[in-house]
Nucleic acid binder design. Sequence first.
DNA 1: GGAATCTAGTTTGACGGCAAACTAAAGTCA
DNA 2: TGACTTTAGTTTGCCGTCAAACTAGATTCC
Lengths: 141, 141
Amino acid sequence: METKSIAALISDTRAGINRHLLQELKRLGIEGLAPSHGAILHHLFNNDQVTMKDLAKAVRRDKSTVTALVGKLVANGYVEKASSTQDQRTVFVKLSPKGQALKPVFQEVSRNLIERIWRGFEETEQQELIRLLRKVRGNLP
Amino acid sequence: METKSIAALISDTRAGINRHLLQELKRLGIEGLAPSHGAILHHLFNNDQVTMKDLAKAVRRDKSTVTALVGKLVANGYVEKASSTQDQRTVFVKLSPKGQALKPVFQEVSRNLIERIWRGFEETEQQELIRLLRKVRGNLP
DNA sequence: GGAATCTAGTTTGACGGCAAACTAAAGTCA
DNA sequence: TGACTTTAGTTTGCCGTCAAACTAGATTCC
C-alpha cells in the first residue's frame, strides 16, 4: 500500500530540506549556524524587538530550546538580549548590526530553497500540496 | 505568499507525527522507546536477520546512529546482536522473543497513525499528496 | 500589604542525530 | 605472502530538542 509510507515520506522530505539548508549555509561560509537559527533570524528580520516567549511561539520550539539557540546567536554576535524595564522577567531579543547584515544572505537562502522545492511544479500543484499538507497537519497533535 | 511556508509546514507535520507516536507509545506503556526505534523494529518484523549496514540504510539513519539505537533496543531486551561467522566484521541484528511480542502492538500503532493522518481524505487526495510529496522529495538532496 | 498564584526565562539531564576519527576484519594485487 | 585499500561497525564529540525542576519578577486577592 502506497499510503502507508506517508510518515516516512514526510520525515525524509523534512530531512532533505535540512540537508539542503546545511549545504547552503556551508556554501555561504556561515559556520556554526543551523536551520533552526535561521528560523529565529528570519523572525527577527520581520520583527525588530521580540520576547523569548514570542520567539518560541514563532519558531515553534520549546522555550528552553530557544534559550539555547538565542544563546548561540548571541555568542556569535548576531543578536543581542536586553531585559525589559517594565517587566524584569521579559527579555527582548534583537538583531545586532552583524545580524542585520545577514538579511540579504538569508533572503537568498530562502529564495533558493523555495525555488528548489517547487522545481517542476505547476501553480495549482503547489496550492494543492499546501492544502493537503495543512489537512494532515490538522489531523495531528 | 502561501507557498513560502511549505518548509515550515512539512517540518511541523513531521513534528506532529512524532508527537502522536510518542503519545501512543506512552499510552501503550512502552517506556524508553522513540519513533526511531519503531522504525528499526518495523524493519525487523519483516526481516528476521539484518546487518547494521542494511538496517541503517533501511531506516535512513547514519550507521553511528543505528549503533546507538540498536544498543538501546538490546539494553531493553527487544533485539539481539550476533556477529557473523563468515565475516567477523558484520553484525546480525534480530528480534528477541520480547521484541517479537511487540509486533501486534506496533501494527496497531502504525494502523492508528495512518488512520489519523488520512482522516477526512478521499482516496484520490491521498494519492495526490503522496505524488506531490515524492516530487518535492526528488527535488532535494 | 502580604501570602498565594502565575508567568518569563534559565538550568539540568537525557536523548536522537550526525560527522569524523578509529578499530579491525576482508579483499586486492604485485 | 605482504603491503595497500576497502568495508563494517564503534567511539567520541558536538548539537538541537524537550521536559521537568528551578529562579525570580509580576499579579491577584483577601
